[in-house]
Design a protein around this nucleic acid. Structure first.
Length: 295
DNA sequence: AACGGCTTCAACCGCAGGGCG
DNA sequence: GCGCCCTGCGGTTGAAGCCGT
């Protein structure tokens, strides 16, 4: 972060929009007299003390009550992304980065959901970090940051090692506590966890794609209602965060690799391994993790 | 030292959804 | 059921700062 840790943006008073509403449609808070741009230390203090005293919420009327010449949205954003005491400042740690990668593959651009699983980090911060760091890293590895699938077709895969994907470490990604479970062909069919008869992208949700249940407004992952089953959701993510599950997978991969070493046609079996591995990840293991919560 | 291009990230926007009368 | 209000989310912007020449 360019703005040093713990320093209010007010230390950089000239930074920001400059109060010119020149972009896009008419801003929602276009009332004359509403200040925009970087927050000053005085404004931060007013907002912080007010929210601590009165609590969060009622953002629309908060500026007037607190005596701020800001719109409610701006106040909420400032509090949520900067002033909250629980916010952790400083660079993203390697384990946090690893977790973001995992969660993003699982959830997609659900920054608020991802941030909710990383204590002290805001959705805005994670979104920025993703856009400026992680997506570039994935692209450099030939991985589509949106789908977490290879950008190139499988028969053009440059790296034909036993690991179907390029090494993370070779591109500067920190080695996660357990190997990041990238896969080439995640099993899209939860009902068939061990094998995917359809090798092509499927009409069903992409791996990690969290669907919105528009009837109920809930998030669905593999058919699990993430909102109603919050306990399950939490448990699932806790298990995700817990490296045991990935250590198991890592061990599984090691077994595959050792088998591959004994196989004269190891290259030939790469696709099988990839499919097998992905089935393990998205079929048996992850699905099992969820389904076991309902057992 | 000066300059220009690139990167970063705080802050903005529009939109969607929930709650309420 | 409808409309309004409020909150929260994800995408985008652009000035500050960094870095190479």
């Amino acid at each position: 972060m360019k703005n040093p840790v713990g320093a209010s943006s007010s230390s950089l008073p000239s930074r920001g929009r400059g109060g010119v509403g020149g972009r896009g449609a008419t801003p929602c808070c276009s009332k004359m007299g509403v200040k925009r741009g970087p927050w000053t230390a005085e404004e931060d203090e007013v907002l912080s003390s007010y929210v601590r005293r009165e609590g969060e919420g009622r953002w629309r009327t908060l500026p007037k009550r607190a005596g701020l010449l800001r719109c409610g949205k701006s106040c909420r954003l400032r509090w949520m992304n900067y002033l909250r005491p629980s916010i952790k400042r400083g660079p993203i740690a390697p384990d946090e980065e690893d977790l973001i990668l995992r969660l993003h593959r699982l959830l997609g651009n659900r920054w608020s959901l991802i941030a909710g699983r990383i204590p002290g980090r805001t959705d805005n911060e994670i979104k920025n970090y993703w856009n400026t760091h992680l997506s570039k890293k994935l692209i450099s590895q030939g991985i589509d940051p949106r789908t977490h699938k290879p950008l190139v077709s499988s028969n053009h895969r440059p790296n034909h090692s036993n690991n179907p994907l390029p090494s993370l470490t070779s591109h500067g990604l920190h080695p996660p506590p357990a190997t990041l479970p990238y896969d080439l062909n995640p099993n899209p069919n939860p009902n068939n966890p061990t094998n995917n008869p359809n090798p092509e992208p499927n009409p069903s949700p992409a791996p990690g794609e969290v669907l919105r249940d528009h009837d109920h407004g809930n998030y669905l992952l593999h058919g699990v209602n993430l909102e109603q089953e919050d306990d399950v959701f939490s448990s699932f993510f806790d298990s995700l965060i817990n490296d045991d599950i990935f250590l198991q997978q890592h061990q599984h991969q090691n077994i595959i690799e050792s088998n591959g070493d004994n196989n004269e046609n190891s290259d030939k079996s790469n696709d099988q391994i990839a499919a097998m591995d992905s089935g393990f990840v998205f079929g048996s293991l992850w699905e099992g993790t969820i389904s076991s919560q309902f057992a």
